[in-house]
Design a protein around this nucleic acid. Structure first.
Lengths: 211, 211
DNA sequence: TTGACATTCTTACGGCGTAAGAGACAGAGT
DNA sequence: ACTCTGTCTCTTACGCCGTAAGAATGTCAA
């Protein structure tokens, strides 16, 4: 019987999952080594046996989220724009599932094997469609960049009050802006429309560049 | 004569400019109230007379950088894609001038009048070209989002070593990636090419959606 | 001069990441 | 059974951070 085990039975994996859960629940700014420790029933310094420092912990969060991205390799019949769309959609849903992690994904270079595998798979589909390897990866980069930028904006405006200082401005000075907000710009449904508009435009534009 | 003035003669403006200079020189993580204070020859708490808290200071940095963006209103003869291109290029150069501020711009909603004026101006040009106000602002949003996402990636890989862990991976597993890196992917000149590719594609794609 | 107000400093609190090392536990070899 | 070895955990401490509270100092108008 081990009702009060002296060893907590931790793992890098468990630590990362707990950190992700804590981030999802309380936000990234509340993620501290001490807090994560108490969450796991352990002192803060204990965590340093599973992670060299906090930066590595954050890298682990990125790894966790990005690894969940599906690139649609199975549906190999999809054309290259379909593959890019799959990548974009999957990346977006994973990011929005963990809003606190988005700034980390945007900031930290992705060197993990899982992420590179996704890039490689999509890039290979583009090469098969006739693109140069260099151009193929530039295209994948462009799509990922667009998704990350969009999700940043989408998640940044979600928390409490959207933008109270904007209300203090004289809307009469900005006719186009005023007309658009009156027509529903900024509503939650609008985020989907913004994303679709941008992605569709990018993909049709890319299609015209195919050799 | 005031060789050693007891009043430092500060201003919100001066504080912000000093903060921006400090960020440009030492990086955003080194920007602390105490450090900024000593930089200005003043105690940390003094700064709180010009800025309510650190978050507002960071907002001020964003404001400072974004205000410098030129939207090409003068060259009113440029067509709407030209206006968008001007916006994108100007935003990109301003952001790259202050890499430490990019994560802030990406994260914090822009409510300042100067930023809205830029959006309004470009949006108006789109409306004049036949787009709905809502669509016009979605388009401006798409371009800004793409630029920010790209600059984030570009500035994140600049500091010290690009990605040492990537070298540890077996490149044989990623043929397309390997071929592309061998062909110069990731070099500084490649950033321009990536940006141009993405922006061109987005703009041509948008052109096909014009009513 | 006298107030009123704006500006600056002092002190202090609680939180952070983490360096250094001591202690407790588990399993292997004898 | 005992010790050794290496893994896991805790304790203590240092220097940093943002900022609350309020006392001191400067400036200028009445």
């Amino acid at each position: 019987m081990e009702p009060t085990a002296k060893r907590a039975g931790l793992t890098r994996e468990k630590v990362l999952r707990a950190a992700l859960a804590l981030t999802d629940r309380d936000g990234i700014e509340k993620l501290s080594m001490r807090r994560l420790g108490t969450e796991l029933g352990v002192e803060a310094m204990t965590l340093y046996h599973y992670v060299p420092n906090k930066s590595a912990l954050l890298d682990g969060l990125v790894e966790l989220v990005v690894s969940a991205v599906r690139t649609g390799e199975d549906a190999a019949r999809a054309d290259w724009t379909g593959r890019l769309r799959d990548l974009a959609d999957s990346l977006r849903t994973e990011l929005l599932r963990h809003p606190g992690v988005i700034p980390l994904v945007a900031t930290r270079p992705v060197g993990t094997a899982a992420a590179l595998r996704a890039v490689e798979a999509t890039g290979a589909a583009l090469v098969a469609a006739g693109f140069t390897p260099v151009v193929a990866l530039r295209i994948v980069n462009a799509v990922a960049t667009l998704v990350i930028g969009h999700c940043l904006a989408e998640a940044a405006t979600t928390p409490g009050h959207p933008e109270p200082p904007a209300a203090a401005l004289d809307l009469a000075d900005f006719p186009a802006l005023a007309a658009a907000t009156a027509a529903g710009l900024g509503t939650p449904a609008d985020h989907d429309a913004r994303f679709t508009l941008a992605l569709d435009a990018l993909l049709t534009g890319l299609a015209t560049t195919r050799p």
